[in-house]
Every structure is written in C-alpha cells, then in structure tokens.
Design a protein around this nucleic acid. Structure first.
Length: 910
RNA sequence: GCGGGUGUGGCGGAAUGGUAGACGCCGGGGACUUAAAAUCCCCUGAUCCUAUAGAUCGUGCGAGUUCGAGUCUCGCCACCCGCACCA
C-alpha cells in the first residue's frame, strides 16, 4: 500500500485540535494589526447544519483565513440565534423544555461546524437565550425606552382563539391559524413599539453610502421605507342636498338611505395626495372602511354591512389583482377648495387606513384605481394633464394617464408643468391654512410584543398606581421561569402561577410583570456588537466596538434583505443616538449568497386505498381542523393524481432517458395503499425536506472529508447564484484533493533549475487569486488554482516548480485548510500554515515576452500569430499581411484600413 | 401592476468593446493492470466537406452603433426574485 493518499478522517481532527490548542483564531482586540471583522449571519439552532450553512460559513471562512494571512487581526465569531417558535413547537410536540431542546441542538450543530474546520473564535460564542445576553438586551431596551424610542399603544393582531395566541401574518393561511385551523380574529392588544420611523429618513439616506451592498438590497430597503412627498389638506364637509338612494347610477353604487348618522359627521376630511397638481381633476373622495367617519356611520346597517364586506376582502396577491373596486356613497360631500364643487364621499375598499390619512381625493383621469372606481360608479373623468396645451380637450383613453405633461383645464394652473403646479398648489394651501406639504412614509413603527414564552421578557412592571414602570436595572435580567407548562393553550408566561407577580418598584405594592416577550429580530439586531466586545456587567464597550466595527464582510441569505438588516441598522443608529456607541452603519459590505439546490424527482399517484391514516385525515378536514392545502402537503400519498416527491437516491435513470424508482414502488405496494404512475425529472430546487432533495453535510464529510466539501462550495457557481449539488461534483473535488496531495508530495527541495513560463504563471496566479478572493469571486480563484496545478504537474522538477507548489499550497490553505496543514508539516515546516503569510507576487515577473496576436479580416478571425510583446504597429501589420491564410481570405482585395491593437489583434478592412 | 435580476455547449460557468466557450462536471477513445479501482494521455459547440493544414453557423429573439458586440443602445420574448390597491 502506498501512503500517497490524503486521509481526512485522520488529518481533519488533528489539525482542528492543533488550531484550537494554539488559539489560532482567537481575536485580540489589542492587536496593532489592521482589523478585519468577518461575519456570517448566525444560525437558528434548528438541530442540524444544512448545506446552505456550509456554503455560507465556508465563504466567510476563506475571507477570514485570507485576511489573517494578509497580516490582519481577524474577528470571525459564531453564536446562536436561539429564541423562537420552533423550540415552543417542539415543546408541545415532544414534551421537552424549549431550553433543553435548544441547548442540545446547539451542541449538535457546534460539533458539526467544528468538524468542517472553520476558523472561528469560539471564545466569544453565546446564544441569545443566555440570560446574560438577554439581560443586556433588556437593559438596552430600557435605555431606548428612557430615550423615548420605545412606546406602548393598542394595535390590532391576528388572534387564534383555539391556541389563544397571537399569530404572525405568515401563520395565517386563508384566514385560519396554521396550527389550529381555527378562524383567526382581529384583536386589539396593548403592544410595545420601537420608534423606527424616527430614523426613516436617516435609514434611507444611509443607504446611499453603502456602496458595497448589493443594489438589489438597497432598493428593497428603499421601497420598504417608502418615502413619498405631497400635500395633506382638508376638505370642508357639507350636507348632501341630493335625497335618498342613488339614481341613475347603474353600476350598483349603494347609497346611504338614511340621514340619521349625519349629526356625528366632523366638519373636515383630511386627505393626502402626491399629485396636488391634479386637484382640479378630483371628482370624488374615498375613505377607508375603518376610517373614523365610516365608523361613525356604521349605525346605518347598510354601511355596517359594507364595512364588513371590505374587511373580508382577501389580501393575497391574486385576490388584489382581480379585486373589484367597491364603494358606498356616504351621502356626505366635500367642498373642493378651489372650485367649491361638491364631491361625493365614498367608503371604498381600496383605501388603506394605515397609509397617509386613510382618505384620498379621487382623480380618475390620472390615477388608475380612481379611474376604475369612477368608471364603475359613472363619476366624471376629467383631463387635467395633457401632452401639450393644444391637447386639453383630447378624450381620455381606457386607462388613467399618470405620466408627465402640462396642466390643463385647471384655472390658474393651466400650462404649468406638473412639478411647478405641485409646488404652487402646496404654497396656496399653506397660505390659505387648509393644507401643508408633507412627507409620508410606508415604514411603520416596529411592533415587538410577542405573546410567547421562548423569547426575551420585556422588562416592564405594570403598576396599578404608576402604569408601566421599567424593571430597575439592578434587577436584570428578568429571567424566564424554568417550570413551564405547554399543555394548555395560550402564553405560558401569562399562565405561570407565580412568575408575573411582583411589586411596583416605586410604590412597593403588588404589581404584574409584562408577560409578552420581544420579537426575536431584536435579539439579532445587536449580536454583532456583543461579538466584538463582551465586558462583564455591560452589553459592550464602546471603545472596543470602535476597534472592530463596522463589519468588513457580512454574508448571509437574501431573505434577510429587509427586516433583519433594517432592524440591525436601526438599532445601531438608535444606540449611537443615545451615545452608547459611535458607529452608524453596522455592515460596511454585505454579500447575499445563493442557495444550495439539488435535483428533484416526483411520481404521480395512481390509485388510493384509504388507510386508517387517511380516515383520520378526512375527519380532521371535516372538523375544519385542517385546510385542504395542509392535508395535501402533509399526506400527499392519500390524494390521487397528486405528485409525491422522491428522494433522488431512490431514482434510477433508464437507458432510454426515462426514470424509475423501484425501491419506492415496492415500498408503496407493500403498504398496499398507493401506486405511482411514473417518475419524472423535476426542477433543480432549493434543498428542502418536503421536496426530499436534502443532502446531509455530515454524511458527505464522513465520506470525503471537510476539504472536499469546502472546495465544492467554492467551485463553479458564482457565490451570489444558486449552487447545484451533485454527486459527480463532490467526487471531482475529492479527486482534486488527492491530486493536490500528490503534487505536494512531489515537492523536492533539492530540485534545481529555472522554468520561466511556470514562474510567470505562478506570479500571475498569485495576483489573480488574491484579487478574486477579495472580490468574493471564489469560483474564479478556484479555476485559476486548477490551471496552475495542471501546469505545475506537467513541469519538470525545478526551483520554479517548487515555488509554484508552495504558492499553490498557501493559496489553497484558506479553502482546504486540513490538507494544507498536513502537506505543510510534511514539507518539514513546524508552524501552522494558517498563521503563515500569503505569497507575494513580483510585478516584474508577470509580463509575457511573447504574445499571440489574432488576425482578423473584416472582423472575422483568419489566423493567429506569435509576436514579441510590445511589437510596433507597423511590424504587426506587416506580419499580419504576410500570413498565407490572410492573403487567401483577402483574394487580392484592396486593403482600405488596418486596425492594430498592440499585443492583441490586427483587423484588416477591405 | 411596479421594481430588480438572469438568459453563453449535454451541465455549472469563463471572457477591461478585441481569438467566445477558460476551469470544472458529464461523455467518448486510449495507456497501465490477469482484472478492477486509482492514475495518466487524447478527443469533446453545431453543421457541411473532397472529413489531415477546409468552410459556414453560433452567446434568448429583432434591429442599431462600431473596423470589430456575449459585452454598448433601442424594441421584444422567456424564466426567476422582491413588493403590492402606499393615493
């Protein structure tokens, strides 16, 4: 047997221990070296590391190791985003305490991460469910509370009456709770909010400076913040002179038929518009169903019924797309501020209460929604913007014209530009005292109250005399009780027999603790600060934060493009605002990596025999405990014609290109319940349990070792795109690991002699790989290393070859650290290559002395020639014309022009 | 509907306006071997040909700018992602 093979099962663990014992990756805040903070989004401890994690952390790891070799002091920490619902779900299903479940998941995942050999500073590890961490978070919450950035108000929530809990929007499926299947109710609860809107403008402005963020993410945040400017103004309200039900309005416009409610009508209606220039085109007003005026009219049963109808309207994309504009004439009119015309006021289903003032002026000519509404209810559609003044009387088409133009049919605004007219109307409104120019934001304050157990308790005491009172800081952390019961529905903290009972810090009288916990996004809004600095007795130290922040590279999934990244930016600003830190933007550069995908296969179901399971399912459906979609996704095998996903490992390809899954077929037949009809190739999709295309990293590492997996994660696909997993691909990586090992083994210190070509290629590669890594173009760095490896393999032993081999060894070491350490030691080095310096390229040795010149005739390639580097244009032209192939192509035609690009090409034009 | 992205061999993908397909995977042929594994070498965009050193076509489609376009401009198409009745 030869020992000429690299054995990761032995080497990986050995070097992981060596790094650990040497403290190689422990970051020193007091180091004089330039500092690099490399961070990947910390994981939720779900139980297992998946390929997406491996890809994410491998990228960060290469950067961290590279920066260290470039002489930086690197902070590359890891921790756990440990609060959240899955732990409570596990508690309910498996009867384990959420803390126990979470802790054991963390232990398992940490072990998995360690065997991949990541260069992490584990001394800074923490979990957000550590009382120490969330205690500091509570203190920061109270600091922000004192600064007026936290407040409490009533807010509507989705309430599941069966589970007695609040649901996030994503947990409401077709108006029903995802778990209980019960009809979700709207409830008003007192909730805590962060005043993120105070920073709306600043958060928006700040985006402009984040040059190293993807444009896509900046745009998404920009849209989310949603700044718009316009005019907020009020209409005087009038009694409607028109009597009774609507006449001559075939569109079915209902109309309030009683006047009983009119006494309660306020005198004014505030509206917001971004198009004050079109004010002369207003033909109606519309208010939201939950607008105070609509509410005050609800004593009229017709109106009450209409309001109910509006609320029922679906909120899914498809429903909104097709939803008809519906209105109800209130019988009240608004007086147009310039013309005095009486505009009917409708309650309308397309007006949102929580944007602007919850009321709009309807300008059908120049707003598509207003246009549809006016068409339906036969309201006037006037043109007030035209391409040109001469087009003032041009008829309107079949949709609104929202484009630019000049104002027409608008009294004093006629002939003015849109922008000009906007400014004029705003000025007149302000002079007249009936309106003012305003900025409106889409961004809402951040509601952070969650009626759950497994989160950071909100450190507030509700005192009967003093209302909500902060928990005194010396009583922090407010710890979660351990003895908790998940048997009965509702918030376990609320139900706990003793936990919430305490005393008022001011009066000493009995009082109740706040039983809500914080949104887990709060936990991840400052963890990167805690990684950088963790003094005793304080969340962090500002001076130490200043040494590391901002994070140099922040890497994670694009799914966090809005919420997490916006909240983290907000917290950083808020903490800076109250003087806790001196950093504004937490992440200097952001990189959003693609997903790891894999082939899917599915089979169609042919026949069913109902099993016991199926009958249970039907009962659950009948009892409304389950929606059809849920039943389908949980038990696809019970539905004829539906598709069942197959594990790619069960699928075999036939010679004719079709697929079969013999093992699954047998499994089905044995169960005597289901038959499949045919196996089909599905799309390459993100690995997910439900699609059965997950590949477990642990099993792959067992087989090929950490380095092959890491190399795979970096190869081929650009890191921002999806990476398709393949068995063949990982085998290729494994072969390359061994190929490198043999090359390193061929290192012969005694070899003598030059090899100019190889030396040049080595220097070129050193330069290029460094640039590629810094640009996070790992796939290109990998390709260059393949090339140089090929060249070094073919070269005869020489000093130049030894130089190339050592350069390759150093350059692959951030990517395949175990192999590199093993080879480094075998070459007789006593230190760790993880602590070695990145190789230097010599600019003088990069230059080629001969170049290949392309010869084109009319832009088409006819020949290539070799010429000395830096040959003159005249020489190149002469060489080109001397080419036999070129002469044949020219066929004696007259040469009109010759374009010469030095060292590149000659193009002959005839 | 609005916004953004992507489109190149059988596949993943390279390519400062200058030789399209680097590099990897798959596939084919060969060497070594009793055999296999491993390894090494060669071929591998399509079509045509008189098939050695030939020609034509080719980067989603259609135009344009240019001596020269995968790359720039305009107009389409397809797919993916995000947001969504935001006044």
């Amino acid at each position: 047997m030869t020992d000429n093979r690299f054995d990761p099962s032995k080497a990986d663990g050995r070097w992981q221990r060596a790094w650990d014992e040497a403290g190689t990756f422990t970051a020193d805040s007091n180091s004089d070296k330039p500092k690099s903070y490399i961070l990947e989004m910390f994981p939720y401890p779900s139980g297992r590391i998946h390929m997406g994690h491996v890809r994410n952390y491998t990228m960060g790891d290469v950067l961290a190791r590279y920066q260290k070799m470039r002489g930086h002091e690197v902070l590359h920490p890891m921790g756990w985003d440990a609060f959240g619902m899955p732990a409570e779900n596990a508690a309910m299903e498996k009867k384990v305490h959420p803390g126990t479940w979470t802790r054991s998941n963390i232990a398992a995942m940490k072990a998995q991460l360690q065997r991949i050999g990541f260069a992490l500073d584990w001394t800074r590890e923490f979990a957000t469910c550590d009382p120490e961490y969330y205690g500091h978070e509570q203190a920061l919450f109270l600091d922000l509370y004192e600064a007026g950035l936290v407040y409490r108000r009533q807010s509507e929530v989705n309430w599941d009456p069966v589970d007695m809990t609040v649901l996030a929007n994503e947990q409401v499926i077709d108006g029903k709770g995802w778990r209980s299947g019960a009809e979700v109710e709207k409830r008003k609860l007192d909730q805590w909010f962060f005043k993120i809107t105070d920073f709306a403008d600043d958060l928006l402005q700040g985006l402009g400076e984040l040059k190293d963020w993807p444009d896509k993410v900046r745009l998404m945040q920009e849209n989310w913040i949603g700044k718009s400017s316009g005019l907020e103004f009020s209409f005087e309200l009038q009694s409607d002179a028109r009597p009774g039900p609507v006449e001559g309005r075939e569109g079915g416009g209902a109309r309030a038929s009683t006047s009983s409610a009119r006494a309660e009508i306020p005198e004014r209606l505030d509206v917001y518009t971004t198009r004050p220039d079109t004010i002369f085109g207003a033909s109606f007003c519309a208010i939201a169903a939950d607008h105070p005026i609509a509410q005050s009219l609800a004593s009229n049963p017709e109106i009450a019924a209409f309001i109910e109808e509006c609320k029922r309207g679906g909120t899914t994309a498809a429903e909104l797309e097709t939803a008809e504009k519906l209105g109800f004439d209130t019988g009240i009119t608004a007086k147009h501020p310039f013309t005095g015309a009486a505009l009917p006021i409708f309650i309308a289903n397309f007006v949102l209460m929580d944007y602007g003032t919850g009321a709009v002026m309807g300008v059908p000519g120049h707003d598509q929604r207003d246009f549809e509404f006016a068409t339906k209810y036969e309201l006037p559609i006037a043109r007030v913007v035209a391409k040109d003044v001469s087009e003032a009387d041009a008829p309107m088409g079949d949709e609104a014209e929202s484009g630019d133009g000049v104002i027409v049919n608008s009294d004093f605004l006629d002939g003015r530009s849109v922008e000009d007219a906007k400014a004029d109307v705003i000025a007149r409104a302000e002079d007249g005292g009936w309106g003012k120019g305003t900025t409106v934001w889409r961004l809402r304050d951040w509601g952070v109250s969650r009626q759950r157990y497994w989160g950071t308790p909100i450190p507030i005491i509700h005192s009967p005399d003093h209302g909500p009172v902060p928990v005194p800081k010396d009583q922090l952390p407010v710890e979660l009780p351990e003895d908790i019961d998940f048997e009965t529905p509702g918030n376990p903290l609320e139900r706990h027999p003793t936990w919430k009972h305490t005393v008022c810090p001011i009066s000493g009288k009995p009082a109740l603790r706040e039983t809500d916990t914080l949104d887990t996004f709060v936990d991840s809004s400052w963890y990167f600060l805690r990684f950088a600095s963790q003094p005793d007795g304080a969340p962090f130290d500002a001076e130490e934060i200043a040494k590391w922040l901002p994070v140099q590279h922040y890497i994670g999934g694009v799914e966090h493009a809005i919420l997490h990244l916006l909240y983290a930016r907000f917290w950083t600003r808020a903490l800076a605002h109250i003087g806790k830190i001196d950093v504004k933007e937490p992440f200097a550069a952001l990189f959003t990596q693609g997903m790891v995908t894999h082939q899917t296969y599915s089979a169609r179901l042919k026949s069913i025999r109902l099993t016991e399971e199926g009958e249970t399912l039907i009962h659950r459906l009948l009892d409304n405990k389950l929606t059809m979609e849920q039943a389908l996704s949980e038990h696809p095998e019970l539905f004829e014609g539906s598709r069942r996903w197959l594990d790619p490992n069960d699928v075999v390809e036939n010679e004719d290109g079709t697929f079969d899954a013999p093992s699954v077929e047998n499994e089905f037949r044995d169960a005597d319940s289901v038959f499949y009809e045919g196996v089909e190739l599905g799309r390459v999709e993100k690995m997910s349990k439900s699609k059965k295309n997950v590949v477990d990293p642990d099993a792959i590492i067992d087989q090929y070792g950490a380095d092959a997996v890491r190399w795979f994660m970096l190869s081929d696909s650009p890191p921002e795109r999806d990476l398709p997993w393949s068995e063949a691909g990982i085998e290729g990586c494994w072969r390359f690991v061994q190929r490198l090992w043999r090359l390193f083994d061929a290192y012969d210190p005694a070899a003598k002699g030059e090899d100019k070509d190889l030396t040049r290629k080595t220097h070129q590669t050193i330069l290029a790989v460094g640039e590629d890594i810094e640009a996070l173009s790992f796939n290109k760095a990998v390709a260059r290393l393949y090339e140089l490896t090929g060249a070094a393999e073919k070269a005869a032993p020489s000093e130049a070859r030894n130089f190339a081999i050592r350069a390759i060894l150093h350059m692959v070491s951030p990517m395949m650290p175990h192999l590199a350490e093993e080879a480094y030691a075998k070459m007789g080095e006593t230190g760790l290559i993880a602590e070695a310096a990145w190789p230097q390229h010599d600019p003088d040795l990069l230059v080629e002395d001969e170049v290949t010149i392309a010869i084109q005739h009319k832009g088409k390639l006819r020949d290539t020639i070799t010429a000395p580097k830096g040959a003159t244009k005249e020489d190149l032209e002469a060489l080109a014309l001397a080419s036999e192939k070129v002469q044949r192509s020219l066929q004696g035609a007259e040469v009109r022009k010759v374009i010469v690009v030095p060292d590149r090409l000659v193009n002959i034009v005839t």
